[in-house]
């Protein structure tokens, strides 16, 4: 596999920034999963696809729109009817799914090099994200593990809540640096640390 370079690199400055005299309230990092895969089921094949996700990742999908789960290494969430995003720290997820998801069940699209995963965590994570996206980030409305498809100024974003105050945001790789800079600016007033 080719060595992957981060699109954030010129703007990725480890350390504390902004108004952090009273403490850092936001942690920003790039999770750099080895695999990011998009799966889509043909009509009526959703249950078989969900079973294949369980076979390959060991993750069970909760019922309902936008349901998802994460074990800290692998993550999955629904982002559209019959469609799922799966990420794994390791490479090779697309090849594993290509075996499990037969052409009769649906499709596998390898986006490992096409998306950048940015993690925002901390007590002000909901607050900062609320400046970007007009969706409800409160825990009862957006439970841990769940995913949401939305957009920020036409930059499409898939967001998975991976903790009570932690979100993983998948954005187009080509827009990732611009989005990252915006996220840093938005975090300045509460103090943020890049890890």
């Amino acid at each position: 596999m080719a060595e992957r370079q981060s699109p954030l690199e010129p703007e990725f400055h480890v350390g504390s920034h902004g108004n952090f005299e009273h403490g850092v309230e936001i942690l920003l990092t790039e999770t750099r999963p080895g695999s990011i895969v998009q799966l889509a089921a043909w009509p009526g094949e959703e249950k078989k696809l969900i079973a294949a996700i369980r076979t390959v990742t060991g993750l069970a999908l909760p019922d309902g729109a936008g349901g998802g789960s994460s074990d800290g290494v692998k993550s999955v969430f629904g982002f559209a009817p019959g469609k799922f995003t799966v990420a794994d720290e390791a490479e090779g997820l697309a090849a594993a799914f290509a075996k499990a998801v037969t052409p009769a069940i649906g499709t596998v699209t390898d986006l490992s090099h096409g998306r950048t995963a940015i993690r925002i965590a901390g007590p002000k994570a909901e607050w900062v994200l609320a400046k970007f996206f007009a969706i409800d980030f409160a825990l009862p409305a957006f439970p841990v593990g769940a995913g949401r498809s939305t957009a920020h100024h036409d930059v499409f974003a898939q967001i998975q809540r991976t903790g009570a105050d932690q979100f993983d945001i998948y954005v187009f790789r080509s827009f990732a640096r611009s989005f990252w800079k915006a996220l840093c600016h938005a975090s300045e007033e509460v103090g943020y640390e890049v890890q």
Binding site: P43, G44, A65, G66, G78, A141, F142
Partner: peptide, 14 residues
Amino acid sequence: DHASAARRKAEDKA
């Protein structure tokens, strides 16, 4: 056939 994918009731207000 997408009707079954609708948001579950518990998340109606999301």
